[in-house]
Each structure stands twice: as C-alpha cells, then as structure tokens.
Design a binder for these strands. Sequence first.
RNA 1: CGGGACGUAGCUCAGCCCGGUAGAGCACUUGGUUUGGGGCCAAGACGUCGCAGGUUCAAAUCCUGUCGUCCCGACCA
Length: 579
Amino acid sequence: MRWTQSLIPTLKEAPSDAEIVSHQLLLRAGLCRKLAGGLYTFCPLGLRVLRKVEGIIREEMDRAGAQEVLMPSLQPPEIWQRSGRYETARDVLYKAKDRSNKEWILGPTAEEVITTLAASEINSYRQMPQNFYQVSVKFRDEIRPRFGLMRAKEFIMKDAYSFDVSDEASMVSYRKMYDAYTRIFARCGLQAFPVEADTGVIGGNYSHEFMVPAETGENEVVYCESGKYAANIEKAASQGPLTTTPNASTGAAHEKFATPGVVTIEALAAAPYGVAGHAQVKTLVYMADSQVVLILLRGDDQMNEAKLAGKLNATAFRAASAEEIFEAMGAHPGSLGAVTSTRKKLAIRVFADEQLRGACGMTTGANEDGFHLRHVDVERDIQVDVWADLRTVKVGEACKVTGEPLKIRRAIEVGHVFKLGTKYSEKLDSTFLDVDGQRKPTVMGCYGIGVTRTLQAVIEQCHDKDGIVWPMSVAPYQVLVTPLGAAGSATMQLGEEIYKELLAAGIEVLLDDRDERPGFKFKDADLIGIPLRVSVGEKSLAKGEVELKPRGGAFVAVKKEDAVAEVIARVRQSLAALA
RNA sequence: CGGGACGUAGCUCAGCCCGGUAGAGCACUUGGUUUGGGGCCAAGACGUCGCAGGUUCAAAUCCUGUCGUCCCGACCA
C-alpha cells in the first residue's frame, strides 16, 4: 500500500478526551476515530490490526477443534427470559423495537442462542464434544464506557461454547480452551496470564480470566510471587488477616457504652475508646432484591461485593439507603449492630464473614445512635444465618498455597473462560440421550476474548515515548519503506523498487511515498509503529546502502542489492518467534 | 444514578472573572524556500462560540434549562 493512497490520519497531539496512553495512540496513529461515546470507526490501519488478531484467534480456535459459526446479534427476548438473564442482565441489555412494536435484544453474548441451536441439533452422546465459536459485534449498555476500545458500548468479541456429556468431559474442553488462550495471547505478543476468577452474572462454578498487567487496567489481581497462585481480587482468598481476631471469651455479657458522635471504625479505634479495628464488628445493610440483609465483617476488613453476590442468591442487590437502614434498624450507619437482643426486626438474614467465627470480646454498634456494645461474643450474641468468605484480601496476607506474602497489581482482562455446567442447557432444554439411555442436560462451557480490547491492550503494553511498537504478528504492515527524497528522486525510485519486490515476495509493506520532510516521515513512522523500516536516503545511497531500522531498535546499514532478502529474512524470523 | 470538570476552527487551547471587532499554535490550500527526526517565509480557506430560552441597547462572556464529552464513585459476563 502507498501512504498517499491510504487514509492514515495521524495526529501530532492527542484529543483531550483520551486519557490513557493506548487510547491516545489509537487515535494519534490513525487506527480509529470516535463516532460517539463508546463507539468507534476503525480506519484502514486499525482494521488491519483487528484482522490480524482475529486471524490468530481463528487459527488457534480451529487448532483446538472448535468450529466457527455466526449467530444473530438481534435476538428474541423470549430466550433471555427463559435463561433468566432478561432480568439478571437487564442493565446491560440494549433493546430495540421493530415496526410492529415487538422487542428485540442486541446481543451482549450468545449463550441463549447457541444453547437453542444445541437443543435442536445435539441429541445424542455420539455428537459430543462440540465447540462452536464466532467473532462478532457485541452490544453492552455500559454505564460508563471508557478508555477507548477498552470498555465500549459496541465491541468485537470472540465467544465460544462447548457442549459435553459430563462434567469430566467438559473439563477437557475447558482445558483445551485454556491452552488455546495461552497460545493466542502469546502469539499476539502479549504478556497475559491466567487468574482464578469470579463467575458473576453469567453463572457457573469454575473460571479463569486472562490478564494483561497494566497500571491502567480496571481489574486488580492478587498473586503470589511463586506463580502458584493468582486470582482476581473479586475471587481471591488468603490465609486471613495479618492480625488475629480476638477469640478468648471473658464470659462477660455484652454491655452498652456511650460513644457520642462516633460513626466510623477509625473514630472508635482512636482515643479515648482505643478499640482496634480488628476487635470491631462492622455492620453493613444491603437490599437484596427487596429484602434487607445484614453483612458482618471485621472492622478493618472491606466487603467484597462479588463474593457477597455469590451468596445472596438475589437478582440484584445494592447498599441500602439511609432511610431504609433507619427503618430496618432504628439507628443510623455508624451505630448499627447485629446483636440479637438489640435488633428492631429479627426477620432479617445475617451474613457474617468467616473471620468473625469464634470472635469474642468484640465491639459493635448498639442500634442506638451514640452507643456501642462491648464484650460481644459473636456466636453467642448474634444469630448468623450464613457464614461465608466475604472480605477482600489485602496486600501482604499469606498465600493459601505457599504461605508467601500476596501482592496486588492492576490488569486488563482480555479473556475469560467459564465452566457453565448445566445452567443454560437445563433452562433452554439442551438435552441428549446418553449411552445408558438416560436423557441428560448437556454440560456447557463458554469462552470469551475481547478482540478490540486485546488490540488496545497490545498498544498499552507495546509502546514507547514515540508511539506504538507493534509485534510483527499483529502489525498493520510488516515493513515500512521510507524514501527520503521527493517524487522522481533516486531515493524514491529505489524505494519504489524495494517496495515492489517486497510486495512480490508476499511481504505486507507500506511505502511512504509522501512528499514530506524526513523528520516528518520518521515521526509518523515511529507513531504508527511498523516493526521494520527501510530508509532510503541520499547519504547511505551514495555508499550503495540503505538502512534497516527495527522499530525501537538501532539502524543497520545494508547493501541496497541485499536489502530485500534481508528484510524478508527478518520478517520471517520475527513471525517465527511469535508462532 | 451521585460528585466534579469541560464544550470556542479538523486537533490542542486562549478569550469568559470585568458583556461591546472571535483569536493563537498545529493541521489544511497556493506559491517560494528547505530536505536524515514533526523546518522557514508569504498569501489563503476554515466558526450558527454545543443547543434552547432568559437578562441587556449589546451575550462566547451573565442566568436558567438541555444535550454531549471526560474524570471519580456506584455499576459492570
């Protein structure tokens, strides 16, 4: 491709609404343009990268035995009602109406559609395992689209769905996808690593996310330096807090004492009270659907909403409002407690974090503004309905696997694999006759890769101060030929020759045939990040040479007649390193 | 949805406080000059100052509303 015939709208300055470096480079390198918040047009260069990433995904999915299909993005709401997600996922569902006022859903994913297909077409154990994938546009009514392609309203996702006869067989399918994902991200030049993950609204019981470490990532990953444990903070567990919870009962009955104006853990920890955070019980009030529930945590712990969601068994939940809290408890936040004898209403479920099991001599709110209770022995004084791990792990706590101190870093989620079990197959009647003649629900797995997000993650990870540094495998072009003279000059003529020979050899090459100054061309070249540049300038041409410059590396002079062969060799070598 | 900020040329932004001629740099067009890391000179084109009301002799500027964008939070397969 000739630069003069391609739309590569580079920018010297980044638009002010681009906050993170990958978003800025996406726009500055002319890869895409914003149409509206969370909606982007891919320009030619960006589309080429997108196709490269998709190509790698297709090769690896095919290699893993998956079959490509294509499902509708416009989906009937009935199947969403059957799966239950019409309600549980309603906040992210885009809905459209046709001329007869019938409602349709713009699919955020396709479990319902593929399960409908399986229900009608997979009827025997002989037909499994099956794994179907597609690469398609997905729609999500994100509350806050941000960071360019990272979190968009419309984006490209590869989604795959496996169907197996049993849990064990499903595990094999899961493992294949896990391995395929590892290869896909490596081939894209990304350092991505799998972490244990929460399954969220999608359901299921076993899951890993593939994470790209980045300060700008929206996820936090808890990991052990040994490499033996890594988990999303929503899922992560440790051996517990660094301070032990008081657990020796004095036998004393709980006792009310005045704490005027004290409504925070910190205030109660300070003089004159001096009750350490880990000796307090924190009481949170949530609305689970329309039910009030109490959540108890150690005072110095933070609630983990993902963990809570897994225990509540509710369609939706949120923190209760001040009014709802007063109505249920008779006191305001900061003075709340779950001690049975102080409760205004007893028909409220109490969820307590495991750290409070056996806790004695604790202090908590008295359900009376300005008062707390001390000498609270949790199991004696509080009627707990559900014990569960509800706390968020903190840096430095001991790893459950190795005992070493855990670390936390931010990361971008580029892929997610789930074992779904029979959640969807049961609701949408995907059943089969097994070898024993029994009718059983198919056992499913689902596997997603955010293709557009992956593209941006590569930029986030592969750039320097001058621009993008594409890995050869996903670069929009493999080689950029940069003649430094004007049209008709000797350098431009040689550049043309090299360009044509590389094209003939099957190399993806861009020729900067613009009549621009060298500095301008070099800046643009660095910005768009083509991995290998061939510069043809008068100085080196006088010595019968041209210059090869790997993006981010140093110049190498090569005899002009050797240039094409050298370039081809280097491209193949780079590709092989990422195969 | 709560909190905050911002909407002025294609992009980055000044002007707004203190109402009175709409500006700069980059990009774009033309000509000249220059040619190894975003040159220089000259000329030119580009704006309903987001939109709608209001106040005023007069509004980019003050007031109200609205739409959009971004940030923080909530939310989030």
